[in-house]
Simulated assay, not measured.
Amino acid sequence: MKRVRALIAVLVPLLVSGMAMAQSPVEITSDQTVMNDAAREVVFTGDVVVVHPNVTVWAPKVIATYGEGGTTDIKTFVATGGNVRLKTKDQDATGEHAVYTPADQLLRLTGNVRVVNASGTVNAAELVVNLATSVSTFTNSGGGRVTGVFTSQ
């Protein structure tokens, strides 16, 4: 359990800082971008790449919803499409769907989740990280089990 926490402790702050898209410049490329001010959302589709100094996110589709403060007031960041990847200098996480909500400080990565770093790999159906409490929870459904392989250094 200690190694799982160590694995996530490095990954999550970097991911969230990138997904919150605040304070640091963020470069987003996609095949198509649609900004809908009435709905307060920006939808990026087609080989989306989000590059932040601390994390790079790849996904078929990314939707950022924002509040009255405009695009710097991010309410949710959703990466979907079945092939979502979040990579930092030391970590690589994949899944089918990622959601970050700054208001409750929750990061959810779901669907065949795999988190890899130099000390090991964890596989699960879902990873939920509560940044307010620093608690990371891997779960599986349908009687499946969370699995991990760790190497000593």
Rank of each mutant, 00 (worst) to 15 (best):
R3Q: 14
V4R: 11
R5F: 09
A6S: 13
A6H: 13
L7F: 02
A9S: 15
L11R: 08
L11D: 15
P13T: 06
P13Y: 07
L14I: 01
V16I: 15
V16Q: 13
M19V: 11
A22W: 03
Q23I: 10
S24M: 06
S24I: 08
P25F: 02
P25K: 03
P25R: 07
V26P: 08
E27W: 03
E27M: 02
S30F: 05
M35R: 02
M35C: 02
N36S: 12
D37E: 14
D37A: 09
D37F: 04
A38H: 14
A39H: 14
R40E: 04
E41Y: 01
F44R: 01
G46E: 07
D47F: 04
D47R: 04
V48M: 07
V48I: 10
V49T: 11
V49N: 03
V51K: 06
H52L: 07
H52M: 03
P53R: 11
N54S: 12
N54Y: 11
V55Q: 12
V55L: 15
T56I: 15
T56S: 14
A59H: 08
A59V: 11
P60V: 00
P60C: 00
K61C: 08
V62C: 00
V62A: 02
I63R: 15
A64T: 13
T65V: 03
Y66L: 06
E68C: 07
G70P: 06
T72C: 03
D73P: 05
I74T: 12
K75I: 04
T76Y: 04
T76C: 02
F77T: 03
F77D: 01
G82N: 08
G82M: 08
R85V: 06
R85A: 02
K87W: 02
T88G: 14
Q91I: 04
Q91Y: 05
D92G: 05
E96S: 05
H97I: 01
H97S: 03
H97M: 06
A98G: 09
V99I: 15
V99Q: 08
Y100P: 05
Y100K: 00
T101N: 03
T101A: 08
T101L: 04
A103K: 07
Q105V: 03
Q105R: 15
L106F: 14
L106R: 15
L107D: 01
L107I: 02
T110E: 14
G111M: 01
V113E: 00
R114T: 12
V115E: 01
V115L: 14
V115M: 11
V116N: 00
V116W: 00
N117I: 01
A118H: 13
S119G: 11
S119D: 15
S119L: 13
G120F: 08
G120V: 12
T121E: 14
N123S: 11
N123E: 13
N123L: 12
A124Q: 09
A125Y: 11
E126C: 05
L127T: 00
L127F: 00
V128S: 07
N130H: 13
L131H: 09
A132F: 05
A132Y: 10
A132K: 14
S141F: 06
G142D: 12
G142W: 10
G144P: 10
V146R: 06
T147V: 13
V149N: 13
F150Q: 11
T151R: 13
T151D: 10
